[in-house]
Simulated scan of single mutants.
Amino acid sequence: MEATVRLAGRITDWNDDKGFGFVVPSGGGERAFVHVNAFQRGSRRPVPGDLISYLPGKDARGRLQASEIRHAGQRIEVSRQPSRLPRATIGIAALIAAAVAARIGWIPALLAGAYVALSAVSYLMYWFDKSAAGRGARRTPESNLHLADLLGGWPGALIAQQQFRHKTIKQSFQSVFWLTVVVNLVAAGWLVSSGLAAELAQSLGG
């Protein structure tokens, strides 16, 4: 039954940085919007000219889009395995750890509050970018996402990445993301151990 509704076509106008492009059906017809998240889990990154099969459908605004995309010759995945990395759990645990550390006096309350506030900002930025990707609207630059994460919003980013299934496949993004996490934790540890975090909190009345 599926074979009668699936279409075959080639990828065109692919923007790998933004993770979307279009597919032109073989034999002619209306092109459909393609997003990297619509590919079967485990698929390689698409490139212009790739032959794919897909199910055509309409988005909320009535525009043609492709779903359940597979590269030509790719086997059907029987079950979609969830990500092995519990991103949301790690993000929530990090925020709880910051709150507990502040409660027992290991870190200034201002620092814990900053993590919560920046995590909220980062979460909203990922949500906005995911929403824009689905609408084909202007995206949030990856550098802005990385900056928010570097400043301390990475726990919220982890929660958003898992909840929205966003930015988890692109390896280059994930490499930079985890680097921002490490740099942030090292910087926060140095600020606390040197006493600068406490001095700053005291000067700000935290």
Rank of each mutant, 00 (worst) to 15 (best):
E2Y: 10
A8P: 04
I11N: 10
I11F: 13
T12D: 11
D13L: 13
W14G: 03
W14A: 07
K18E: 03
G19V: 04
F20V: 04
P25C: 09
G27M: 13
G27L: 14
E30P: 08
F33C: 01
N37P: 00
F39I: 06
F39M: 05
S43M: 10
R44K: 08
P48T: 09
L51G: 03
I52M: 02
S53L: 02
Y54E: 00
L55N: 00
G57K: 05
K58G: 00
K58C: 00
D59N: 11
D59V: 02
A60C: 00
R61W: 11
G62I: 07
R70V: 04
R70E: 03
R70M: 06
A72M: 06
G73D: 08
Q74P: 05
I76D: 05
I76W: 06
S79I: 11
S79P: 01
R80E: 14
R80I: 14
Q81R: 15
A88P: 07
A88T: 12
G91Y: 06
A93K: 13
A94I: 13
I96Y: 06
A97I: 10
A101K: 11
R103C: 00
I104T: 14
A109F: 12
L110V: 11
L111H: 14
S119G: 09
A120W: 04
V121I: 10
D129Y: 01
K130F: 04
S131C: 03
S131L: 03
A132Q: 13
G134T: 11
A137W: 02
A137D: 09
R138K: 07
R138H: 08
T140N: 00
L145D: 02
L145H: 02
P155T: 07
I159V: 14
I159Q: 02
I159D: 01
A160Q: 06
Q162P: 09
Q163F: 08
K167C: 08
T168Y: 00
T168E: 12
T168R: 13
K170R: 14
Q171M: 05
S172D: 05
F173L: 10
Q174K: 12
V176L: 15
V176N: 03
V176M: 13
T180E: 06
V182T: 14
N184W: 03
V186S: 07
G189I: 01
G195P: 06
A201S: 14
Q202C: 00
L204A: 12
G206R: 09
G206M: 06
